[in-house]
Design a protein around this nucleic acid. Structure first.
Length: 292
DNA sequence: CCGGACTCCTGTGCGC
DNA sequence: TGCGCACAGGAGTCCG
């Protein structure tokens, strides 16, 4: 389940391959993987950056934008099982199934290919005529990016919703980038019960959640993200953060902090693991997180 | 308007 | 060994 750290790591690994390269060929295997219809017409290979020079890669939340010099932008969303993979010059394309789009690139460093595959197809591509239209039509609707979320900003947003805190953290319109894995890890680090009502946890707990969010996402980026099943970076490497998960995937195992048996419940249609002792509704402390 | 539930989809892993 | 089913979940959509 690629979340913010996995997308950020992907952006870093793809940048040297894509930025400055010109798209020499595009093969769209599955048209319906393009989720919007630019200008209301059928998608062309030019829409998918054929002939364009790539200027930057930008991430917002869990989304990665490939922005060309002309402004034409392809937005990549990996969903549950999506991958954006790099195939270096001279090497054969790996025989993966569910490859939906392939870009052939040329730059001063030579040729390369990048392909998008997504077995479950919860992910997809979106096309925007300019970076401004991407922001206006989509990114401005997202909440602030979770990696740099300010305590007061998060607090103000959490105060306005009666949902359980975990459901609020998963809402990309409230804060962008957190998925099921990191929501559980963040709430454990902050000592907050995932079922607690967001508007009832109080300002100091909100600050703890914001601090835990920034801390955990930054550590996860350093470790190259988390691989649960499908996630791999542009070069096929899996993420090293799984070994640092303290609650996700550890239901019924003992809490690393107090030994209490971790509880597994269903919340907002997601499996949710937490320590009933460490995660009381009121914050119990920062578990070693730096104070901000 | 808000929040919860349902839906899409395929690979995996389990029980029988 | 093989079959069938439950389960995993990001996010759009629908409904009360």
């Amino acid at each position: 389940m690629p979340e913010l750290p996995e997308i950020d790591h992907l952006r870093r690994t793809l940048e040297p391959v894509l930025v400055g390269a010109v798209v020499r060929e595009v093969r769209l295997v599955r048209r319906d993987i393009v989720r919007n219809r630019p200008l209301g017409r059928r998608v062309t290979r030019r829409d998918l950056l054929l002939g364009q020079a790539i200027e930057t890669l930008q991430r917002r939340g869990k989304e990665l934008a490939i922005v060309s010099r002309s402004g034409l932008t392809v937005l990549v969303h990996l969903g549950m099982s999506g991958q954006l993979r790099h195939c270096p010059a001279g090497r054969r394309l790996p025989r993966f199934d569910h490859v939906h789009c392939i870009w052939a690139l040329e730059s001063r460093r030579g040729r390369a290919r990048v392909f998008f595959r997504d077995p479950r197809r919860f992910g997809g591509l979106r096309i925007y005529p300019s970076r401004e239209s991407l922001v206006a039509q989509r990114w401005s609707l997202l909440g602030p990016d979770a990696l740099k979320i300010a305590g007061r900003t998060l607090s103000a947003r959490l105060e306005r919703t009666r949902r359980p805190i975990k459901a609020a953290l998963l809402d990309q319109h409230l804060v962008a980038g957190i998925g099921n894995i990191y929501a559980d890890e963040i709430l454990f680090a902050a000592g907050i019960d995932p079922r607690a009502r967001a508007d009832r946890i109080g300002p100091s707990a909100c600050l703890e959640v914001a601090a835990a969010t920034r801390h955990i996402l930054a550590r996860a980026i350093e470790a190259g993200g988390s691989t649960i099943r499908d996630y791999a970076d542009a070069d096929g490497r899996s993420g090293g953060y799984v070994a640092r998960h303290l609650v996700y995937g550890r239901g019924s195992q003992p809490c690393v902090a107090c030994g209490t048996r971790l509880r597994l419940v269903r919340l907002a249609q997601r499996s949710t693991v937490f320590c009933p002792k460490c995660q009381s509704r009121r914050p119990v402390g920062s578990l070693g997180l730096p104070r901000t």
